[in-house]
Design a binder for these strands. Sequence first.
DNA 1: CCTGCCGCCTGCGCGC
DNA 2: TGCGCGCAGGCGGCAG
Length: 284
Amino acid sequence: MPELPEVEVVRRGLQQHAAGRTVVAVQVLHPRAVRRHTAGPDDFAARLTGRRLRATSRRGKFLWLPLDSDDALLAHLGMSGQLVVQPVGADDEVHLRVRLTLDDGRELRFVDQRTFGGLDVVGTDRDGVPEPVLHIARDPLDPAFDDAAFVAALRRRRTGLKRALLDQTLVSGIGNIYADEALWRSRLHYARATDTMTRPQVHRLLADVRGVMGEALAEGGTSFDSLYVDVNGRSGYFDRSLAAYGQEGRPCPRCGTPVRRDPFMNRSSFTCPRCQPRPRHGRW
DNA sequence: CCTGCCGCCTGCGCGC
DNA sequence: TGCGCGCAGGCGGCAG
């Protein structure tokens, strides 16, 4: 559930259904799901068993639950990860990777088809931020996000605009969907050179990022299929509101020109060729 | 330092 | 019907 709104939906679900609970048992069904826990699956289980889960936090697409030790349970959903809460005894999901049995007769399950995501138990800094998250920039919904610093940093880059938006060390939480949607709202092309962006353009783009993410959050996130669900297995509805992403050939909601798809970084970018003309001196 | 590329996985839908 | 290919909400590591 990869981008910020979907991860935030999951965070809220964990806060409601997992925070405050104690982990009474841990079962790792697929070691790759805990590969970032370098001490191995047994150590992962040992550091978690008997621990109480505290309030759920998020930065960008990372989320974590501090433990009543000095550690935190850190999760990244990757491309296809889910965290779901199920009653003990519910059928195992096909791609169930890790099962945490809680003290209320339920299980917190990490399910992940492609295993790009994973869990680990890690130390935190003084502010409670997990060590693997320290290099991740704050996200645009974080009250401490520094707009002016972001505008300056983006304009210092020498790359294409969408690459910059996807760089989690510059601004976190934006992935392929919301990058395309925000660029469409701002009428900017993905290959626009970052160092030719004006300050007002970057401020407007940031406002559009926040706008699209806020609307997606209100709809429960974007789900195209059952891979992207909240902790109760429910899908969001924002896919119905997408203007550009995944809309190849469909009319641009603003001008009616068919949306085009271009290959981009081994994936795709969707633009309105009329609203978002390719810059003459763009950067890939 | 900064930028860009590649590999890591599984499954689905499409064209042949 | 079967098979190969392209494609999918992401990231870390490494080369230049």
